[in-house]
Amino acid sequence: MNEFSLWTVFTLVVGLVAILAFIAGNAMALVWMERKVAGFIQRRPGPNQLGPAGVLQSVADAVKLLFKQILKPSNADSIIFFLAPILSFFPVALLFMPLPFSPFFTAYSPNLGLLLILAFSGINVLAVLLAGWSSNNKYSLYGAARGVSQSVAYEIPLLLAVLAIAFQHGTLNLSEIVEQQGGWPWQWNVFTQPLAFLIYFISIFGETNRSPFDLPEAESELTAGFHTEYSGMGFALFFLAEYANMVLVCCVATALFLGGWKGPFLDGFWWFLAKAYGLLFIMMWVRWTYPRARFDMLLNLNWKWLLPLGALNLLATAFVMKLF
């Protein structure tokens, strides 16, 4: 850990404020992007009324959510009901701290950065559970139960894939992992660890509850799953946390597998953002292309394919690392 000084406090505070702004800005941009991508894929214009190409649509949505009345079901547990959305959003700012956007734009670079992200992202599952239970509603409860069995399952192959990378570089510091990769695509980890990248990329769909694995909030079966009863800012916090988590997993993938802020020329945060947004675009593309998986398919894919493959990949990595 760093020595305590005013400078550290200053960088932490500035970093936190910048990250919160980044999260809010990204969520708005992503909602617009998601709708536009969905529109193009389904051959319709998408939002196009507010501002040029509908860019102000998200602003209008945000204002609407801010002013909407917050309702609570009469039999809900009021403390836990309002605790859940807060619990879902509060770790998000912390999760972005160790991300190396560029050598300069890193809020905090601890040696255990990767572990910090993995540890605090588990709190989101807890929030989903509490929300589902406290709503006192069968749809919410089913959504929460699905969310948990899915998150707990997909966390394991995700950890195995991340562990293989940590093993290869001998560090859990994201900045150092980026430092050890080169600028050209064949110097990235995705080139040496393609299987780990594939496992990671499939797992993040399960972890972030994104279609085709969006069973916790499957509209056609569960209304809206665990957040059925939330309105106004309660819903907005879940929504923000969901999009922030999407950005986060893509940013971590960029740092771990795609060389982070390094590019063929002119290293900088623009490479990081471009790669992360590329991954986000693929996530949206998948969402609007594939139908929702059935729940047994989802769990079978995880326990029968991803988990053994991840374990084998880790073993192979250990073997190769010992050999060379």
Partner: peptide
């Protein structure tokens, strides 16, 4: 010992508590 703290979060809060709640 941040390692222990993160492990506490990862294992107890993230996994064991969730399973108990389940």
């Amino acid at each position: 010992s941040p390692f222990l703290a993160f492990m506490q979060l990862l294992i107890y809060v993230g996994a064991i508590c969730v399973l108990i709640f389940f």
